[in-house]
Amino acid sequence: MPVEDEIRRFAHSLAEDLDSLFADLEAAAALVLSRLGAENSHSLRWGPFAPDQLRMMEAEADGLLERHALVYGAGIIFDPDRIVSPEQLIPWRVRGATGAAEAYGFDFDEHSRDYYDFMQLPWFAEPKATGEPKMTAPYVDFLGVDEYILTAAVPFADDHGFVGVAGSDIEVSTLEQVMMREAKNVSGRFVLLGAQGRIVCSTTARFLPGELLEQNAGSGHHLELPTRVPTLSLYWE
């Protein structure tokens, strides 16, 4: 099989995984909206959430972690201006040491040195502004989960406008493992790219994760992953 076909086959298989992840995020966002939206429709600020409502959001996140081996953390992130209790801002779940899902606590005290201010970050600001799902380029999530990750986020809104996003983090290391497994079936070398041409991982040491492709590349071939939402692309020479 020619290299290009092998790479296309890889692109399709990864695109399927990502599409199914976005479908699950959309389902989680829709569920939160339907379960919590009606009773909160009378006020601008949602909540405070009852224990069973928090458990419902946790269960959604846990299901996502269970179904998607790629995902490291998942949950709902509310807009701070649309919620009553700041400590309920991010019901977030991550894979624990044993592989089982566990709660992840963020720091919401504005005066703390470790205050996690996510309002300007692309996975929150862009879906908020556009109303569209978003897959970010790799970034170091300082004061978040402090890992090197990509984030996929799907916004949801009520009559007052944007409420929050259903989000999930993918560790670059995990994506790399998946790619390496698949790449055994591809005879050529190739590079997986995030937004703005940032290298996520590659099968050659010539292209290092985190660098920008344009500074290293000659004139090769580009292929966008055929996902419903723009996600990643592939480059090979």
């Binding site: 099989m1 055994k184 079936n185 005879s187 099968t203 050659t204 040491a205």
Partner: peptide, 25 residues
């Protein structure tokens, strides 16, 4: 050094284990 280590790593990851049998080179 970094190039060397990553190259070793990739060589291990991509060439160890079985390739698909139906995969003609």
């Amino acid at each position: 050094d970094t190039f060397h280590m990553i190259d070793q790593k990739l060589t291990l990851a991509l060439h160890e284990g079985s390739k698909d049998d139906n995969h003609a080179r």
